[in-house]
Nucleic acid binder design. Structure first.
Lengths: 344, 344
DNA sequence: TTCTCTACTGTGAACGCTCACAGCGTGCTT
DNA sequence: AAGCACGCTGTGAGCGTTCACAGTAGAGAA
């Protein structure tokens, strides 16, 4: 059966650029030019090609294109969380969705990759090199070699949150953790709290470190002493927050406020306070961080610091595409916002 | 500069099958055979090729392969939720992660696609046809034409939850909603509850319908009357659950149990009960559905019906790959499990 | 008028791979 | 001894696209 006859029965072979060219009465080259911006194409030809594309229902074969251009026109969203903590975190959804839709606007599909185990990490790295134009990296822990490796391999890359120890060589987009923490602690101070404790994020994550730094700096600004007994690091999980708060209550029963490094941990803190018979916010004020859905689910609803996740995701995509287009790496820091609810 | 010299400066051109062939002292064909299962290859050649692959760091160029095979060796995870409700739902994370890792085990990347708007839907459909081997479809609402369209287009497809009105033509994997609802309602009955209300899921979703059916059937089995005043449909959101419970309390203040169609709605129900001064579970028992993280976040922790999300995702992938491999569509229904906590 | 420049168009080659085929030698059957 | 089958191997063709190049026509300048 010849090729042109092969359209009566069975699944029709999808139309190629040749079919469009024939239909429009022009050559492959002209069709290709139309497909790639339409420069140096006469209005008549442009018109003919566009209507031919419409009539045939032609879609470019990306594999063929990628084979010759070397680009894949796709981007990986790489998640490297050993404990897959991020998946417990509702923020993740927002970020992932934001990146997906921002990329979709450019007709770029998002490949989701999860590197939980070492084997997965290797598999993903092998795939990324050569099959993807760039990487949106979500990985909080320092000691994670993946950012360095990707940068080394020359893969365009933008991280969510400042990757530790990468100098200024890799792009990242982050919320203003330090400023957000400062706003919250100052707010607690101005509400009259004087024994302000903190449950920090993991200290091997930039968010954990920066928010703690903001806490400490604001204490100093307010003339409050920095008391190590009031500082407990958590692990961004609900259970971690609960444990941290218990420890805190034991070490310093007189605290009247807790600044918690994430809303999820704050949920745990609330649970521990409730168990200890402390009323929130009357006895102890609790301030969270993230403004994730968890903040609304908490009882009482959490006063917290909003991270602009929608902007973070769109900026990540913007910076990545710019970098793929040849621009230099960039760092973007976005402002946070204090959200007042019932817990402080 | 000739091709073979082009390795001193700049980014090295990735090795091709030719390079491997030369390195191993065999032909392209033999390397290709090794790459595709190693049939009809002598042990010596197999060995030489494998070590050459290792030495050169060769990775197959999937674009070139796809161009000729017509397969893409990738799968789309398509989310069609107008309100993007699913993204609020923690179950989503588990499902998405499960699918990603199950596919990764087969070296198949997952493309995440979100069809919120009509334009996005069209874009995704255009991409899917021809660029993806199959689709994992997450779409709860009936009236959603996407399942029918994909099936029509001959794209291998497996839905999460039974797609309404598709006959037995499209594959799906679902939890045993009816059985799960039955277990919960029977449990409430056996704990002595006699005025058992329900906040159902949306009645244009299979889950909503089936769970309501299970509720109704069990009432009959237990000899309890079916009272329409005790049935309020919700929308799977926390706020919807809260509103539904308020309505319920108004219509029937004497209820002593509520079976809620999702954990997220159950959170809302708990909030409404608390506001109304009802103690849970003393005055009113609350049973959820899903066993999502929301169940643990609720106060009191929710007694609920566990959906086996990890198995759902792995079954979805299994069925999809089988179908891509030529097998017929299949329906898989997985058992649920009653999880007793504090709310009932 | 002639020349040059520009806008537009068509053509061959290549991207890296798989598939079908043909060519071998070896071991078995007849 | 001839025939045949089978395991293994190399080779040419082609997948659908872009890119570089060459070629054409028409407009404007000399």
């Amino acid at each position: 059966m010849s090729r042109t006859e092969q359209n009566g029965a069975g699944r029709r072979r999808p139309p190629t650029i040749h079919d469009v060219a024939r239909e429009a009465g022009v050559s492959r080259g002209t069709v290709s030019r139309v497909l790639n911006g339409g420069h140096n194409v006469s209005p008549a030809a442009l018109d003919a090609v566009q209507s031919a594309i419409h009539r045939t229902g032609y879609t470019v074969n990306r594999h063929a294109r990628s084979l010759i251009t070397g680009r894949s026109d796709s981007v990986a969203f790489l998640l490297t969380e050993p404990q897959e903590r991020f998946f417990e975190d509702p923020n993740f959804n927002v970020l992932l969705r934001g990146c997906t839709t921002a990329l979709a606007a450019h007709d770029i599909p998002l490949l989701l990759m999860i590197a939980g185990t070492e084997a997965e990490r290797r598999r993903n790295m092998r795939y990324i090199a050569g099959h993807v134009d760039g990487v949106l990296l979500v990985s909080s822990h320092s000691g994670d070699p993946v950012a360095a490796q990707l940068h080394e391999a020359g893969v365009p890359l933008v991280a969510c949150g400042k990757p530790p120890g990468q100098g200024s060589k890799v792009s990242y987009v982050a919320a203003d953790d330090l400023g957000g923490a400062r706003d919250m602690v100052r707010y607690l101070y101005e509400s009259g709290r004087r024994r302000i404790a903190t449950v920090a994020g993991p200290l091997d994550t930039p968010g954990g470190v920066e928010r703690l730094a903001g806490y400490r700096a604001t204490l100093a600004e307010c003339g409050l002493p920095y008391d190590e007994a009031l500082v407990v690091p958590g692990d961004y999980s609900r259970a971690g927050g609960e444990a941290a708060a218990s420890l805190l209550l034991e070490r310093a029963p007189d605290i009247d406020a807790v600044f918690v490094g994430s809303d999820l941990m704050a949920q745990g803190v609330l649970a521990a306070l409730e168990r200890a018979g402390r009323r929130v916010p009357q006895d102890v004020a609790v301030g969270g961080f993230d403004d994730s859905p968890a903040a609304l689910a908490a009882r009482p609803e959490l006063t917290t610091v909003r991270q602009p996740w929608d902007r973070i995701s769109s900026e990540m995509v913007r910076v990545l595409l710019a970098q793929i287009g040849g621009e230099d790496p960039a760092a973007v820091i976005l402002p946070t916002e204090l959200v007042r609810r019932d817990s402080a």
